[in-house]
Design a protein around this nucleic acid. Structure first.
Lengths: 318, 318
DNA sequence: GGATATAGTGCTCAAATGAGCGATCCGCAC
DNA sequence: GTGCGGATCGCTCATTTGAGCACTATATCC
């Protein structure tokens, strides 16, 4: 093909697709028949001079969602399309979780929130909610106020008009004694008592292998290495989980201000929010733990967990 | 907008743009009127759910080319669109240079070739050429055989069916004495004699500030620093040039096996090939040197040099 | 309640477009 | 020259599509 032909291809493509000119107009401008123009445009698409992309990020994939729910023994799953990097995936999955809450929360519920970048994204996209009370399920971590559990709780409560019960205490402290003392703090104790009233909990999934976890990032290297030795592969709300879904009762737990697995198990609705291939193994482990009732995720994670053996021990129906 | 509406938008867009379904078909599938479908598709484009891109890389921009030729005092300029990174720009500009040669070389010419990644790209895209003899204008540099001047010469000669006269000697040696000895080598001497017969020379432009030059990369750091001190800002075929276009006669030149500026000036047609914003200043300097008669470049470099003061000292007509 | 925007919907009719077809042109073998 | 693909071109005719308009539902203000 000559340079002239190519130039004509590009010119026709510009006029048709960018300037919305009709093929007849283009034909007149270029001095060729309208049929020629049609053939040029056809070629332009074949050769990749013109590319048309449909961005389906954010679209629900109900068929996949149904398979995933069955496969993981959950009452419901939500699967969205997501493209791009980790941050984009988090935004999409967070948005989907926000929508899910917007559509399914009932007035008067008590919502428990863990934290993580995905939940930060969720709280940022939260639509108006019915009046619910919101409680933080774990202590606070990290210096970045914008991503802290407190902020997540604040924003969700704001959208609902209900009360917010944050926990102004560190998630992990140096020894069990300090943790006990903190738990006795009136404000903290009030939050912990509220755990028994939670009707819907929202959790992010942390992966330890590969390491995609805000908790893991925040932990002192010594702790992280020791826990990994003990078989930790995933975590939700600072509850540590092994590959087979077993909840690992570690000394570490005594140093954390957070909800316990037995408490979480009594909550009627527990939603995990996690996207991206890297979190697939961890999400599978969490699903096996039987702590969850629902999952919000993206296509890549959904397809990955469907490749793994199904979860057989379903959580009892609510 | 609800998630359902969004899903419908995406679905309609997929069917129309990807599967080439008619709006009537889509209307039937989705159970809405064809007008609704038309409006959905309109929205899809407005909202960026559907994006249409016309890739015009490689298209000539004749208006710019004319301005650049005038501005730089050249007989001709070729300007192409190029998008993407440095490598993409080199490919496009190289392709344009290859086309230019394919269209303008005459049988029996003697073509002199310098080297550089742009010229490597050019030689890779070379169309069949009339029978011409090809001579290498500089010694060889670097370990990468694929990018060596010898390879460039070989490929161009191959496309034309004419003879190739490579220079199997290093471009730079440690002292002038060695260089002299090399220049007396029969094969090298034959090439050097051929410089006087060259009718068309093709040169890449090396930039020293910012540093975008294969020569600069290949030079010992000591040499490079010293030459930069002497005011070198650009180079073509190892001829070193200052900001004002002055050819810098350095001791360094005596250690190089390469064409001299005075020889280059006697060649009737000297084409520089260079693309990318980073090479704009260097290309301008080379243009001021009066060594060139033509330039092949991309839009970004063309627009950049048009922002600089014009070249007043044109090279005499051939 | 009633008047008035406002957005969304589906219609008609004319213009734009695609599918398929025969005409034409070119390169090549005989 | 003659005959034979193969490619390209522009035609007709049926289908698809867009522009503009009238209609309806909903919200909003008086």
């Amino acid at each position: 093909m000559t340079a002239d032909e190519h130039a004509m291809l590009v010119r026709a493509a510009r006029m048709y697709y960018v300037d919305d000119a009709s093929k007849v107009e283009i034909a007149e401008t270029l001095g060729v028949s309208r049929f020629k123009v049609a053939r040029l445009l056809e070629q332009a698409r074949e050769r990749g001079v013109v590319t048309i992309t449909v961005h389906d990020a954010g679209t629900l994939v109900p068929e996949l969602a149904a398979s995933v729910a069955t496969h993981l023994g959950l009452r419901r799953a939500v699967v969205v399309e997501a493209a791009g990097g980790e941050a984009d995936v988090r935004t999409e999955v967070g948005l989907a979780a926000a929508h899910l809450l917007g559509e399914t929360l009932h007035e008067g519920e008590v919502v428990g929130l863990a934290w993580g970048r995905t939940l930060t994204a969720m709280s940022a996209a939260m639509p108006p909610l019915p009046r619910v009370d919101v409680v933080q399920l774990t202590g606070a971590v990290g210096a970045d106020l914008d991503e802290s559990p407190v902020e997540v709780v604040r924003r969700v409560a704001l959208r609902s008009g209900g009360s917010a019960r944050p926990i102004f205490a560190p998630l992990v402290v140096d020894d069990p004694r300090t943790a006990d003392a903190l738990r006795r703090q009136p404000d903290v104790a009030a939050a912990l008592r509220m755990f028994d009233d939670v009707t819907t909990a929202i959790l992010a999934v942390g992966s330890w292998d590969p390491p995609v976890s805000q908790l893991l990032d925040a932990l002192p290297p010594g702790d992280a290495a020791a826990l990994r030795e003990e078989g930790v592969r995933a975590e939700v709300a600072t509850i540590l989980i092994g590959d087979g879904g077993e909840v690992l009762a570690t000394q570490f737990a005594r140093r954390c201000i957070t909800i316990r697995a037995d408490q979480l198990r009594r909550i009627p609705r527990v939603i995990a929010v996690a996207g991206g291939l890297a979190k697939a193994k961890a999400t599978m482990a969490v699903a096996r733990s039987g702590l969850l009732t629902e999952l919000v995720t993206d296509r890549s994670l959904a397809e990955a967990v469907l490749e793994m053996p199904p979860v057989t021990t379903a959580r009892p129906e609510a």
